[in-house]
Amino acid sequence: MHSVVCIKQVPDTTEVRIDPKTNTLMREGVPSIVNPFDMHAVEAALKLRDEYGGKVTVITMGPPQAVEALRRVKTLGVDRTILLSDRAFAGSDTLATSYIITQAVKKIDSEDAVDLVLCGKQAIDGDTAQVGPGIATRLNMPLVTYVIDIDSVDTEKKTITLKRSVENGRTALCVEYPMLMTVLKELNEVRYASLPNMILATNFKAEVWNKDDIGAEMKNMGLDGSPTAVRKIFSPPVRECGEMIPHGIEQPDVAVHNLIEKLSHNKTI
């Protein structure tokens, strides 16, 4: 099995603060981490490799510093890491991001056939959950989102059996691969890196691909290829908590009376 995992470097939101005056994110000094969902995607790919053999390639699109995200997953023992980095990529929205990543996956596939593409459910900063589906659509691959379990792989029939989370429950699916999945944290527990892998990660070199390496066209990426623009970022107003009208069970008539009183008092009825 050759899995390609897409990871995004994101600010550690547990340490991001919003400037109350300007409503902008204060990113200064905030450490970067690998998008938490993506760590579970990497773990899933490693598990499949441990069980069925093969290879795990991890890619990320971002500025040169994003190599640290690749270093982090290198400590888990992934085989190959590629940084997609080019000034022309800056300002890409989800449409352009999925285009760039698709181009990269195509190139990887041409060197070494890709069986699975794995993404996180969503990025904790952008939060759109669009990049994974965007890549699947462009690659014309089956897509399964919200994966919480990978049961088995039939390498003869080239099918994978998995479970996805849906509202009110879960569904089991058997899907042909090559396919793309986006994963939830319940899928697995991320392994604790072994010391040899930690040591190897200290002096690894990620491959870096630019727009020419992946044959990407200018019109499809960066600001030119991004129809979305962020107009404003704000934190939603804190919702005031509701008021409980007590004793509904013991004294329903009193509770109803109190409710009507309140509603008519503030002229709702």
């Binding site: 604790y192 890196a193 072994s194 010391l195 040899p196 930690m198």
Partner: peptide
Amino acid sequence: RTNRDYGDL
């Protein structure tokens, strides 16, 4: 000995 797998040096 460290707290990691294969953690002896």
